[in-house]
């Protein structure tokens, strides 16, 4: 079991299997997002309170949910890197940050656009909105910290520490609508047992959530693949994987 995991997490092995799985995930993501968008925009009934403005939910909720999941995954990878010094874990932490930042930005912008007709304001210094904005700054801080330190291992450790400290913000975002009197409505999806959304509106929402998930995985994997080639560019397996002819010939000659 452990030797299997160890092999799975070695950079050349990851490079090989991710080369197969990444395009598959990308196609699944594109299909889910396309179907979910068309369904959500054209084939769901109009909301009885919010009219057609509620359709923003199909981009806002998946982006907001995944902005938190990606952060947790990034902090988890960072912890694995700090504890066990697994290089691939740091590659993942680095690859998750930009996708997470993009999702957080989308959650904020689409939320603001939705807030205008619903609450009558683009922005309010409200608990949910403010803590989500802090999440964006955390992502940007982790990315900036990594790129500002010249020595790779030092940069990775600093970024990992900041990512882990930032985890305190995640429950604050999640429970902000319950702890404080927030403008933001309570959760639509995660209520156990009985979701607060009608099934006719829920299906495209689930499609979009899974679409965002596959988008994240495909995107993070392709970032990780570039990062690995960059870090291991002097290793022989990289030359072989990129089809360097001289390396292939030398190998053939050795046989």
């Amino acid at each position: 079991m452990w030797s299997f995991l160890h092999r799975l997490s070695s950079p050349p092995t990851f490079y090989r299997w991710s080369g197969v799985i990444t395009p598959i995930f990308a196609v699944i993501a594109a299909a889910l997002l396309l179907v979910g968008t068309v369904w959500g925009l054209a084939f769901t009934p109009t909301d009885y309170q919010q009219g057609d403005s509620f359709r923003i939910i199909y981009v806002h909720v998946p982006a907001a949910m995944l902005s938190l999941s990606v952060y947790m995954a990034m902090a988890f990878s960072a912890a694995i890197f700090l504890i066990w010094r697994i290089k691939l874990a740091d590659v993942f932490a680095a690859s998750f940050a930009p996708v997470g930042a993009a999702f957080t930005l989308l959650a904020l912008v689409t939320g603001s656009i939705w807030g205008r007709p619903t609450w009558g304001t683009w922005w309010e210094w409200d608990a949910r909105l403010t803590s989500e904005l802090i999440l964006l700054f955390l992502y940007l801080g982790v990315m900036a910290l990594r790129s500002s330190l010249p020595e790779r291992n030092q940069a990775a450790r600093a970024a990992a520490l900041l990512a882990i400290v930032g985890v305190v913000n995640v429950p604050i975002i999640h429970f902000s609508v319950e702890w404080w009197n927030s403008l933001h409505q309570g959760s639509t999806v995660s209520k156990l047992g009985r979701p607060a959304i009608d099934p006719s509106m829920a299906t495209p929402l689930y499609l979009m959530i899974f679409g965002f998930m596959f988008f994240w995985l495909a995107n993070a994997f392709s970032r990780a693949r570039v990062e690995i080639v960059d870090r291991e560019q002097n290793k022989r397996w990289v030359r072989e994987a990129l089809g360097d002819k001289a390396e292939m010939q030398r190998r053939a000659g050795e046989k």
């Binding site: 925009l41 109009t46 057609d52 403005s53 359709r55 923003i56 989308l106 912008v109 689409t110 939705w114």
Partner: peptide, 15 residues
């Protein structure tokens, strides 16, 4: 979009 065209379409376009 029931009068919400600007909001809905801009949210989807930005996404």
């Amino acid at each position: 979009m029931g009068g919400y065209a600007g909001y809905v379409w801009s949210a989807y376009a930005i996404t």
